[in-house]
Simulated assay, not measured.
Amino acid sequence: MAVSSNVLVRRRSPVAVWLAENGALVALVVLVVGLSLLSSDFLSVTNLLNVGVQAAVTAILAFGSTFVIVTGGIDLSVGSVAALSAIVLAWGATPAGWPWPVATVAGLAVGVACGLVNAVLIAYGKLPPFIATLAMLGVARGLALVISQGSPIELPAQVAHLGDTIGRYLPVPVIVMVVMGVVAAVILNRTYAGRAMYAIGGNEEAARLSGIKVDRQKLITYALSGGFAAVAGIVLASRLASAQPQAATGYELDAIAAVVIGGASLSGGKGRALGTFVGALILAVLRNGLNLLSVSAFWQQVVIGVVIALAVLVDTLRRRETS
């Protein structure tokens, strides 16, 4: 049966292969066309820019999560790490009186440090990624509340400008999202660390036997996830004009959903930055379109949950087909 299955896979037409690899992009186009027909406001410049801004934080978090999921891991802590990083930046620049560049570096460093702690627990402590990152979710959120004493902290003006718009049509969060997406794509496609991520996700033991230092690569992978989470947290805080300890609650689920909707496999070894970007856009377009259509927020959660379930089902069927 395995031989005949492989034969069937090899005989698929180029169009079928392209659709299998770019299904998320096709879904996004269909979604945009459908919503533009249902709502005359959807394709307005103002609304499309709003969609981009809404997608920015989720996309940046999801780019970091892509690294982890490609290795076959999971990171549930990115939302809490994003909030903690922003709180450290704001606390350092406002109550502590640090220069804003120093406070910004400190916020980014906290994100990377949280990722490294996750990696140490997973690679050397042999904890399952789910458990290690779930623990960090609680620790990071708790530290954010302790440092801020449960209250928002004002951002320095220089950092708050990240939430601005250049001219009339160029939101800074969208620029940051695109830059981080390019960085993620370069890491995945053009670096040794990226190739190692795919190898580890494909078969960790085979990667180790081929000479890849798996534990060291996991340190890099989770540190990148934490760093991207820190950037996302700072962008979100700039949009809110303050760092809030409860910010980004639940965003880790949106990030994972964007990666899976974008075509990555939860079993590892598969995933692209472009697919993740498309997945984040699908979530943002869905929420925006449902709001324009006056759909209840409760039903919006149902719709998005169904979309995520379908994405995971497609991934499962695709893996069965190629096994």
Rank of each mutant, 00 (worst) to 15 (best):
Q158T: 12
P152T: 12
V172Y: 08
L162W: 12
I147D: 12
L145H: 09
R168N: 10
L170A: 14
L162R: 08
I153N: 10
A135I: 05
V139M: 02
G163W: 09
S151V: 04
E154P: 01
P156F: 01
G138W: 04
R141E: 04
L162T: 09
I147R: 09
I153R: 10
G138Y: 07
E154R: 15
I153D: 06
A135L: 01
L145T: 05
L145P: 02
E154K: 15
T165G: 04
I166L: 15
Y169T: 11
Q149Y: 02
G163C: 04
A140Q: 09
I153Q: 07
I153M: 10
I153K: 05
A140I: 02
L155D: 07
G150R: 02
A140K: 07
P171L: 07
G142N: 05
V139C: 11
P171W: 01
P152M: 10
Q149S: 11
L145V: 06
L145W: 02
M136I: 15
V139S: 09
D164V: 00
A160V: 00
A157K: 11
A160G: 03
V139Y: 02
Y169G: 11
Q158C: 07
P156Y: 07
A144K: 15
A132R: 04
E154I: 08
Y169A: 12
G167D: 08
V172Q: 09
L137Q: 15
Q149P: 05
S148E: 02
S148N: 11
Q158M: 07
V139F: 03
V139P: 01
L155S: 13
L134T: 06
D164W: 00
I153C: 06
A157S: 13
S151G: 07
G142A: 11
A140R: 09
T165W: 08
A135C: 11
I147N: 11
D164H: 14
I166H: 10
D164A: 15
A160I: 05
L137H: 03
P156W: 12
A132K: 04
P171S: 03
P171H: 05
L143K: 06
G150K: 02
A135S: 15
G163Q: 13
S151C: 00
L137S: 06
P156S: 13
I153V: 13
S148R: 08
M136C: 06
A160T: 03
G142H: 08
Q158D: 15
A144H: 13
L162K: 09
D164N: 14
P156D: 12
L137C: 04
V159Y: 10
T165K: 14
D164I: 00
A144Q: 09
H161S: 10
T133Y: 02
I147T: 11
L134R: 11
G163E: 05
P171Q: 10
P152N: 13
L155H: 06
Q158S: 15
A140C: 01
A140G: 06
Q149I: 00
A157T: 15
V146H: 15
L143W: 05
V146Q: 14
R168E: 13
Q158R: 14
I153P: 08
V159I: 15
G163F: 00
L143S: 11
G150W: 00
H161G: 01
Y169Q: 07
G167R: 12
A160K: 13
L143F: 12
V146A: 12
L134K: 14
A140T: 13
P171I: 02
I166E: 11
I147A: 07
I166M: 00
L143Y: 07
V146K: 11
A132N: 06
